[in-house]
Computed example of a mutant assay.
Amino acid sequence: MTRRRQIYEGKAKILYEGPEPGTIIQYFKDDATAFNNQKKGTINGKGVLNNRISEHIYTRLGHIGIPHHFIRRLNMREQLVRQVEIVPIEVIIRNVAAGTLAKRLGLEEGTPLPRALVEYCYKDDALGDPLVGEDHIECFGWASNEEMRDITEMAFRINDFMCGLFSAINIRLVDFKLEFGRVWENEYPRLLLADEISPDGCRLWDMESDEKLDKDRFRRDLGGEVEAYQEVARRFGLLPEGAENEVLDLEQHRKKRGK
């Protein structure tokens, strides 16, 4: 595909203008960051795996009626998505105490929560994506009360479905983040699930060993990041046994060509 004009580059993806109005090409990078971009590195092949995993999850969510921006995967690293106006709120759904929640409240990591918990963060890297409440969101006009009701309802529904989706492959969905965007139809906004859902934005633990299969391996210097992402893809049936070497070979060929 002919490379198009770059619109935006983030920590994990690059966005290019799409082939048709209202579309965007989303390119998945191998760059890895943590702690508000203070730690940086590379996980070779991560972008390829996240592209496939996110495609799989969005497709399954579409089957249960969750509206989303994903249209189709274009190649190993790119997918075509609808262009949306991003709501500047990260929605975090937690099923088990881990990460910042465990630290803030003095909880032992791994403690199951009495029920799924939703938190909101204001999307601003310079401020460290601070935790905010629904009053902040309404006060500053980041989203309407009606939109927040829809977002929260959708988030819990996605969580219910994804807990079952991961449980079926023996993975515990500890927590994950979602982003939403607006598309305008006849002057009325409609909310779509946006961004990606992958081991970059989910905490995923093996249900038997509690082995971490997500970006915490990078955050905590555990090593084995590529193998963890590959394991998630393999359990979903997206990476047949032995195919990981084929992926790496294709990646090396791509780099030699200077794509």
Rank of each mutant, 00 (worst) to 15 (best):
G22T: 06
I14F: 08
H63W: 14
Y16T: 01
E17V: 00
E20L: 05
T23C: 03
T33M: 06
Y27T: 06
A34C: 07
I25F: 05
G62C: 04
G45D: 11
P19I: 08
N50W: 13
K11R: 02
K40G: 06
I43H: 06
T42G: 07
A34Y: 10
L61F: 09
Y27Q: 04
D31A: 15
L61K: 02
E17M: 01
K29R: 07
G65F: 14
K40D: 05
R60W: 12
Y58W: 12
E55P: 01
T42L: 15
H63N: 14
Y16E: 11
Y58T: 02
T59S: 13
I24T: 03
E9L: 00
H63M: 15
I64W: 10
T59W: 11
I25G: 09
L61I: 07
N36R: 02
E20P: 01
G41I: 14
R60C: 12
E20H: 03
I24C: 02
G18Y: 02
V48P: 00
G45P: 03
S54H: 06
I53N: 10
A12P: 00
E17N: 10
A32Y: 13
R52N: 07
L15E: 03
A34F: 09
F28H: 07
L15A: 08
N37G: 05
R52T: 00
Y58F: 15
P19G: 07
T42I: 15
K11C: 08
K40Q: 14
G65I: 01
Y16C: 00
G65M: 06
P21S: 04
F28C: 04
L15H: 13
L61R: 07
G62L: 07
G47C: 08
T23F: 10
T42H: 13
K39Y: 08
D30L: 10
K39R: 15
A12E: 01
N51S: 13
V48H: 09
N50S: 13
G10Q: 03
P19M: 10
K40V: 13
T59K: 13
G62H: 12
Q26W: 12
L61S: 00
G10K: 04
R60M: 14
A34L: 05
I24D: 01
K40E: 15
F28E: 08
P19V: 07
E20G: 01
R52P: 04
I25W: 08
R52V: 07
S54R: 11
